[in-house]
Design a binder for these strands. Structure first.
Lengths: 326, 326
DNA sequence: AGGTTATGTGTAACCGGTTACACATACTAT
DNA sequence: ATAGTATGTGTAACCGGTTACACATAACCT
């Protein structure tokens, strides 16, 4: 392996000059620069990032902490983070936290020892006291940790308004809202949006709390649909819940969308594969991940970050679970 | 930050002794061991992995190279790899290769500089010349790179036999087999299994090559179903293709499963959410990832690895797209 | 007793970079 | 002319570990 000393010798300068040139720090004459460039070229020298890390106490590692990569929301996020990180020369470490603060903390400690450059943190938990004291650059997704930590999130409230209005415009007179877990920021914002939009109408509605879980949702919706056959619209706070609702409707022989219209929230790929295709409020998950990563890297590299709160617009996607507006 | 020198001073021994004790290498007296243990405890000393890496040229990093984490097959794999890696003290780096050998190679080069301990490689490509010369421990998933590299894969052929027989037992007399891309090992094994099982029957069949892609599959199946209305069974080489087939059937008003039965392959979570639920040959993806990781870690730690070819059994899961056996 | 081998420990070089500091020269300002 | 600043470079310490080697003592042979 060629080292900086080999390069220095070949270029006829000291290692300090080589290092300065390579890092663009300090003064280096044109002659020296040329000699070093040539030596690097000829020796195919590549800097050893471990040696560098050891004394700079920095690295090009980014930690991506998420509850569970298996949850259909996260792969696309991970993909975006990885793409952007790669393009800036960073490497992504995958951390499944399972919503367990201990596990999360453990990851942070372990990776700090490796001089990790920063973290992107996605979690459903509202509180995260152990982040507060970390001096590392962090960007949060979908949850506010504290004022100093930038947050990237979808425009959940607006999305919920959009979805609710879509059902209203399509003639729903009795809407079931599947509210997400109350511990989740995004779920609460969606709830607020629903309430705002439904409040402006004179339509009947009912709210049921429902985890973002397929089988649970199916069970809950089956029960609700049986108890209240007048329901002609369901707005689910997640696509997975919507899938459960759709299944429940199928089992009960309800005709979607003629009889019952359904809108989900998230925009995961699966929605398209359902029959009928799931209408949904799609989040631009890729964009969320990409923006979060760009902000993180700016922070890592001490570049100015304009804002600390980024809201990504959502989009209504109409498929088969809703009718066209009459 | 406390260093090994602090510990040595506190314990009244040399750094060499501390290092030896910490690594279980060389001789350390009981007295010295005790003194070091106490000093470590009191100072809350934690070894710096970067400094260690620098001269051992090893690390506890594992690279997971996969085509695209967004593909529903991979998150569960990644999850398994991460779980097992974590339990052995390793950290996982996520690498989306997009099937691009250049990108793959680039990752390998980059991570080698960080003294990565080993790689788990999943790829759809059959050839991978650039792995051959790597001295790093590697474990492959679903593809054989060379004799020295262990492979973990599902029992694809047996699965295909299982699926084909399931359709036959349920009365199918005209089966459409959606064959996966010919460049893929697993797809070819599935094809072999189908041929073997179908050959033993006197049933009509037709084979169409179909990418593991939802929309494409839908189009292809729609065409096939129109051209040949007698088809009463579809065996798809992947669940995503099966989902496309199911959608096509729904659009054409075919009744699944009374009229047309469908079996997929993979066992991804989405299958359950479809209506009717997708019958499938489920791979134990988690197990594949877990086993691959364990083997890799054994290799990294120079422990003996029994075999070099691991086949994970598959399982027939019957849901709504197949009838019960009459 | 004398030679081997096993046990135990410390010194110092080394891994491959970065950077504080000292020093030299050239240019600018007064 | 002289001080002050900008430019350019090298030496050597340092980051925080590992380990070769030298040396010392204890245990085991014959």
């Amino acid at each position: 392996m060629t080292t900086i000393r080999d390069v220095a010798k070949k270029a006829g300068v000291s290692v300090a000059t080589v290092s300065r040139f390579l890092n663009g720090s300090g003064y280096v004459s044109a002659d020296a620069a040329k000699a070093v460039t040539e030596a690097v070229e000829e020796l195919e020298y590549e800097l050893n990032p471990v040696a560098r890390s050891l004394n700079t106490k920095r690295s090009s590692l980014i930690g991506l902490i998420l509850p569970d990569i298996t949850n259909p929301f996260f792969p696309e996020l991970a993909r975006a983070v990885e793409d952007v990180a790669l393009s800036y020369g960073y490497t992504v470490i995958l951390c499944n936290s399972d919503e367990d603060p201990k596990k999360e903390k453990n990851y942070i400690e372990t990776l700090k020892k490796k001089y990790i450059a920063g973290f992107i943190v996605t979690s459903n938990q509202l509180d995260a006291p152990h982040y507060a004291d970390t001096k590392l650059p962090i960007v949060a997704l979908d949850r506010a940790i504290n004022e100093k930590i930038p947050v990237v999130s979808s425009n959940n409230k607006e999305g919920a308004v959009l979805g609710t209005n879509a059902l209203l415009e399509r003639g729903c007179r009795n809407i079931l809202f599947l509210r997400g877990p109350e511990a989740l920021n995004p779920a609460n914002d969606r709830y607020d949006g629903f309430m705002e939009a439904i409040g402006k109408s004179d339509v009947d509605y009912r709210i049921v709390t429902c985890p973002f879980h397929y089988a649970d949702s199916q069970k809950i919706v089956k029960r609700e649909l049986k108890a209240n056959p007048a329901i002609d619209g369901i707005f689910a706070s997640s696509d997975v819940s919507a899938a459960g609702a759709l299944k429940a409707a199928a089992i009960l022989g309800r005709n979607v969308p003629d009889d019952l219209q359904i809108i989900g929230f998230d925009g995961i790929a699966m929605g398209e594969m359902l029959s009928p295709g799931l209408s949904t409020i799609a989040q631009d998950v890729y964009k969320m991940g990409a923006i979060a990563t760009r902000i993180l890297i700016k922070r890592i590299e001490n570049k100015p970050v304009e804002e600390s709160f980024y809201e990504i617009p959502v989009k209504l996607i109409l498929r088969g679970t809703t009718r066209s507006v009459e």
